[in-house]
Design a binder for these strands. Sequence first.
DNA 1: CGTCCACGTCTAC
DNA 2: TAGACCTGGACGG
Length: 423
Amino acid sequence: MPEGPELHLASCYINTVCAGLIFSGKVEKSEVSKNPEVPFESDAYVISAVSRGKEVKLTLMPLKGQSQNGPQQPMDVVFRFGMSGSFKFTPEAELPKHAHLRFYTKESPRRALCFVDFRRFGRWEVDGTWQLDRGPCVMLEYEKFRENVLKNLSDKAFNKPICEALLNQKFFNGIGNYLRAEILYRLKIPPFEKARTVLEALQHPKQSPGLTLSKKVKLKRENPDLLELCHVVPMEVVRMGGKGYGPEHSDDSAAFEAWLQCYYVPGMRSLRDGNGRTIWFQGEPGPMAPKGEKSRKKSSRKGQITNRVKLCLEQHKLSDRKKEASEEVTKPAAKRRPKSSSCQEKGVTRSGRKKGKELVPGAEHGKAAEAREPSTRPRRKAAASQEPPAREAPAAAAKRRVPARRSAGTAAAATRSRRVKAE
DNA sequence: CGTCCACGTCTAC
DNA sequence: TAGACCTGGACGG
């Protein structure tokens, strides 16, 4: 769920499903969550939500005249979704797995508004306020957002490549990994061009004397600049409705995937940025691109999928980094993960990667020795322009991985039905 | 079964 | 600038 559009759609979802509903009692937190208990209790209260960038604020409002034992004051709880947070409203008998915070209705078979977050990177704050160092919302406070960027271009945040600056929530509250790729792709801005260089050009927009006002307006609308796209692109996702980028398979998620033009799209290139995050793009990486990095272009998608069902099934498919084309096969690669420990619920030793830098240990020989291969998502329209160098190794290496989702109908149904138990 | 990857922050060295 | 923090799907062996 987690970029600006998903948070905003979550707030809309909450307001829709909770409209006219009365909640009652205490707020329950799962045992496993390390987030704070929410000390709110009321015989009758209503819930509403608002979003700002990558945060959602829930307001719990007691109904007047319902407080016999000490008037409970209204309470705000601010949520950040981490990598997997979302809200879901379900019957109490069908609580989703990983429902870490639950608000119950006053009706008889109760229902519950749940904050669901399987990875538990999400956070909430009791009596919370918008995080202080996050900037204006790119979707709902566009003018303030734009001014906050253009008036602070001397900030060192803009010394970074534009693709990294776009993830800085102090200036781009709401932009995340798929949005930065989609936004830069629309203008074909090299992701590793210096942010300040790209943004300074927007301070003094070139005039077009001679044009009528309406012509100028039209021109502007048809040629949005980078900051306008930081508003428009996420708004496109909001207007699609549904849940945006989420794990549930549905017509909505299929529409979302069809909407993506760059992120995880076959034919696009990808690199790890300075923070180890994958940036998807087309064309040149730009002057500040990490050197000796592994680029991975994709490979052409071979078997085109023609079957509709397959398209739905398809989804993502990631690919694998190391490519066998180079003879890299033998090297295990030196990255290893520090397995910390922890995990009371089971002894898990998880992993996670970090920087893509040394992916291919010895391989620095010139060209990109590897090929990752992205995925296969809905078919893009005829991929007309490919990039220059698709000249990867022969067709070799092209394995795709398919992240999540399974069949549309069945998956959704299956997911819905099971999931009764909570942690 | 082990490795890699994922829509994001946080905080310690 | 690294880890930490988590679960789980897709792959490879």
